[in-house]
């Protein structure tokens, strides 16, 4: 017994090093497996507060661009509204967004921490459980998709960016209904990849890729990007498509969080009895 204690005391530095190294290794491995990085994340009180304070200052530098983006979006929505053929009246009063009772609920939020340079990128937004933001909600901007909420605290939430090698999002061609899964190979922040598009699909350079309706996270038809190039897989059955994103992921500020009000019901239907 004495010898064991002596051994521990003599090697206490090495033992401490080993212990701490194993802990950090465990944290790393945990963060590499999807939906498990609960413990160490930036959606908490301290980091959220620091990032919000810092973004309060740095936001002033991007005000002009952000205003232009918002005006552009307003412009598009306004013209959609005035030119819609099936609306019975064109008066603004009939468009009451509060009584909107569709499948999706939309909330605005602001990015307070944006990352795009590592291979596992996360973003932090300034809204959380307090206003009803939950895991597995989709996040988009006026131009295209951003990612999926993967962790929330009371006042903040973390987004798993589409620029993350763990991200898998259901997507399809706009011109036909061939679906594939959207991944990122970690190389460029302007490009993502679409896998598993059937070789019978009419793939053309310059075609638009949108989100597919197969998942309960994003509504169908949210724009993602245009096809840059495509190659047939080694197996010869599917295409791998390189996509240029519509969104400039390096310059994000205002985003919309989409909640699918039927998500629960769909999930219940798809996995009736899991246990």
């Amino acid at each position: 017994m004495q010898q064991i204690i002596n051994f521990v005391l003599r090697n206490k530095t090495s033992l401490l090093f080993l212990l701490l190294f194993v802990i950090s290794l465990a944290l790393t491995i945990q963060s590499h497996s999807y939906h498990k990085s609960k413990f160490i994340n930036s959606a908490n009180f301290i980091t959220g507060g620091v990032y919000e304070g810092a973004s309060g200052i740095s936001d002033y530098f991007g005000l002009k661009t952000q205003n232009e983006i918002l005006v552009e979006e307003n412009n598009r929505l306004r013209s959609q509204l005035l030119n819609s053929s099936d609306s019975t009246s064109s008066s603004y009063a009939s468009v009451d967004s509060v009584s909107y009772n569709g499948r999706y609920k939309i909330q605005s939020a602001k990015i307070i921490n944006n990352n795009y340079a590592s291979s596992k990128n996360y973003l932090t937004i300034n809204k959380g459980e307090k206003v009803g933001i939950k895991e597995d909600m989709g996040v988009i901007t006026s131009k295209g998709i951003v990612g999926i909420i993967d962790n929330t605290s009371n006042g903040y939430a973390r987004i798993l960016s589409i620029l993350n090698t763990k991200s898998r999002i259901n997507a399809q061609l706009k011109s036909s209904n061939h679906i594939g899964s959207l991944i990122w190979n970690g190389k460029s922040s302007q490009k993502v990849q679409l896998n598993d598009i059937s070789k019978f699909a009419p793939v053309k350079e310059g075609d638009t890729i949108v989100t597919g309706g197969q998942s309960s996270i994003f509504p169908q038809g949210i724009p993602i990007g245009v096809i840059d190039e495509f190659v047939l897989d080694v197996s010869g059955d599917t295409y791998t498509v390189e996509i240029n994103l519509f969104n400039d992921m390096t310059n994000l500020s205002h985003v919309y969080v989409i909640e699918n009000l039927d998500a629960e019901e769909i999930k219940r239907l798809e996995n009736p009895i899991d246990e």
Partner: peptide
């Protein structure tokens, strides 16, 4: 790590 969401690297 906590600030940059990188696990324990």
């Amino acid at each position: 790590d906590i600030f940059s969401d990188s696990g324990g690297v």
